[in-house]
Protein backbone atom coordinates (compact mmCIF):
# COMPACT_ATOMS: atom_id res chain seq x y z
CA UNK A 1 0.00 0.00 0.00
CA UNK A 2 2.96 2.23 -0.31
CA UNK A 3 1.79 4.41 -3.13
CA UNK A 4 -1.72 4.41 -4.47
CA UNK A 5 -2.62 6.33 -7.57
CA UNK A 6 -6.35 5.82 -7.25
CA UNK A 7 -8.59 5.88 -4.22
CA UNK A 8 -8.18 2.59 -2.37
CA UNK A 9 -11.91 2.24 -2.17
CA UNK A 10 -12.16 1.83 -5.92
CA UNK A 11 -10.05 -1.27 -5.81
CA UNK A 12 -12.52 -2.86 -3.44
CA UNK A 13 -15.56 -2.09 -5.51
CA UNK A 14 -15.35 -4.99 -7.89
CA UNK A 15 -14.60 -7.78 -5.40
CA UNK A 16 -17.43 -6.63 -3.20
CA UNK A 17 -19.80 -6.50 -6.11
CA UNK A 18 -18.89 -10.06 -7.06
CA UNK A 19 -19.27 -11.26 -3.50
CA UNK A 20 -22.70 -9.68 -3.38
CA UNK A 21 -23.72 -11.47 -6.48
CA UNK A 22 -22.57 -14.82 -5.16
CA UNK A 23 -24.39 -14.27 -1.89
CA UNK A 24 -27.59 -13.37 -3.69
CA UNK A 25 -27.39 -16.60 -5.60
CA UNK A 26 -26.78 -18.58 -2.47
CA UNK A 27 -29.77 -16.88 -0.88
CA UNK A 28 -31.97 -18.59 -3.39
CA UNK A 29 -30.69 -22.07 -2.68
CA UNK A 30 -30.17 -22.07 1.08
CA UNK A 31 -33.03 -22.31 3.53
CA UNK A 32 -32.65 -19.47 6.02
CA UNK A 33 -35.22 -20.85 8.54
CA UNK A 34 -37.06 -17.51 8.69
CA UNK A 35 -38.72 -16.82 12.01
CA UNK A 36 -39.65 -13.17 11.77
CA UNK A 37 -42.40 -11.80 9.53
CA UNK A 38 -40.86 -10.48 6.37
CA UNK A 39 -37.66 -12.37 6.82
CA UNK A 40 -38.81 -14.93 4.31
CA UNK A 41 -38.79 -12.44 1.48
CA UNK A 42 -36.12 -13.18 -1.04
CA UNK A 43 -32.99 -11.14 -0.62
CA UNK A 44 -34.41 -9.83 2.66
CA UNK A 45 -31.04 -9.20 4.27
CA UNK A 46 -29.51 -7.69 1.17
CA UNK A 47 -32.34 -5.27 0.77
CA UNK A 48 -32.56 -4.28 4.37
CA UNK A 49 -28.82 -3.79 4.61
CA UNK A 50 -28.71 -1.46 1.62
CA UNK A 51 -31.84 0.39 2.59
CA UNK A 52 -30.74 0.88 6.16
CA UNK A 53 -27.27 1.93 5.20
CA UNK A 54 -28.39 4.48 2.66
CA UNK A 55 -31.19 5.63 4.90
CA UNK A 56 -28.90 6.16 7.85
CA UNK A 57 -26.39 8.04 5.78
CA UNK A 58 -29.03 10.33 4.34
CA UNK A 59 -30.66 10.89 7.67
CA UNK A 60 -27.30 11.77 9.09
CA UNK A 61 -26.59 14.27 6.37
CA UNK A 62 -29.59 16.15 7.68
CA UNK A 63 -28.70 15.62 11.34
CA UNK A 64 -25.19 16.76 10.59
CA UNK A 65 -26.48 20.12 9.45
CA UNK A 66 -28.97 20.50 12.25
CA UNK A 67 -26.82 19.53 15.20
CA UNK A 68 -23.53 20.92 14.03
CA UNK A 69 -21.92 23.60 16.22
CA UNK A 70 -18.43 25.09 16.43
CA UNK A 71 -16.13 23.22 18.77
CA UNK A 72 -16.01 26.13 21.18
CA UNK A 73 -19.78 26.19 21.46
CA UNK A 74 -19.56 25.44 25.16
CA UNK A 75 -16.63 27.75 25.64
CA UNK A 76 -13.04 27.87 24.50
CA UNK A 77 -11.95 25.57 27.32
CA UNK A 78 -14.47 22.83 26.61
CA UNK A 79 -13.04 19.42 25.85
CA UNK A 80 -14.06 19.63 22.20
CA UNK A 81 -12.09 22.79 21.63
CA UNK A 82 -8.97 22.00 23.57
CA UNK A 83 -5.83 20.21 22.51
CA UNK A 84 -4.97 16.98 24.22
CA UNK A 85 -2.32 17.96 26.76
CA UNK A 86 1.17 17.42 25.40
CA UNK A 87 2.64 15.58 28.33
CA UNK A 88 0.09 12.78 27.88
CA UNK A 89 1.23 12.21 24.31
CA UNK A 90 4.24 10.76 22.63
CA UNK A 91 4.12 12.25 19.19
CA UNK A 92 6.77 10.30 17.41
CA UNK A 93 6.76 10.15 13.67
CA UNK A 94 7.56 6.96 11.87
CA UNK A 95 11.29 6.31 11.65
CA UNK A 96 11.89 6.90 7.91
CA UNK A 97 9.91 10.06 7.82
CA UNK A 98 11.56 11.52 10.85
CA UNK A 99 14.94 10.53 9.55
CA UNK A 100 14.33 12.30 6.27
CA UNK A 101 13.08 15.39 8.03
CA UNK A 102 16.17 15.42 10.16
CA UNK A 103 18.24 15.37 7.01
CA UNK A 104 16.23 18.23 5.62
CA UNK A 105 16.87 20.48 8.52
Amino acid sequence: MADMPTKPIDKLFKPVLIACGVLLLLDLVIDRHPKVPGEALPFFYAIIAMATFVGVIFACRWLHDVLQRPTDFYGADAVDAEEYPQDGLDRVDAAPASASRRQDS
Binding site: I9, L12, F13, V16, L17, A19, C20, L23, L24, L26, D27, I30, D31, R32, H33, F43, Y45, A46, I47, I48, A49, M50, T52, F53, V54, I57
Partner: peptide, 21 residues
Protein backbone atom coordinates in the same frame (compact mmCIF):
# COMPACT_ATOMS: atom_id res chain seq x y z
CA UNK B 1 -25.21 -22.05 7.20
CA UNK B 2 -28.23 -19.81 7.30
CA UNK B 3 -26.69 -17.51 9.90
CA UNK B 4 -23.46 -17.31 8.00
CA UNK B 5 -25.28 -16.50 4.82
CA UNK B 6 -27.51 -13.79 6.23
CA UNK B 7 -24.67 -12.17 8.11
CA UNK B 8 -22.40 -12.15 5.10
CA UNK B 9 -25.18 -10.77 2.94
CA UNK B 10 -25.67 -7.88 5.29
CA UNK B 11 -21.98 -7.17 5.49
CA UNK B 12 -21.45 -7.34 1.79
CA UNK B 13 -24.38 -5.17 0.86
CA UNK B 14 -23.57 -2.65 3.53
CA UNK B 15 -20.06 -2.52 2.19
CA UNK B 16 -21.38 -2.15 -1.29
CA UNK B 17 -23.57 0.71 -0.23
CA UNK B 18 -20.67 2.42 1.47
CA UNK B 19 -18.50 2.16 -1.59
CA UNK B 20 -21.31 3.33 -3.78
CA UNK B 21 -22.08 6.31 -1.60
Amino acid sequence: VAHLLTQLQMLAFAGLSYIWL
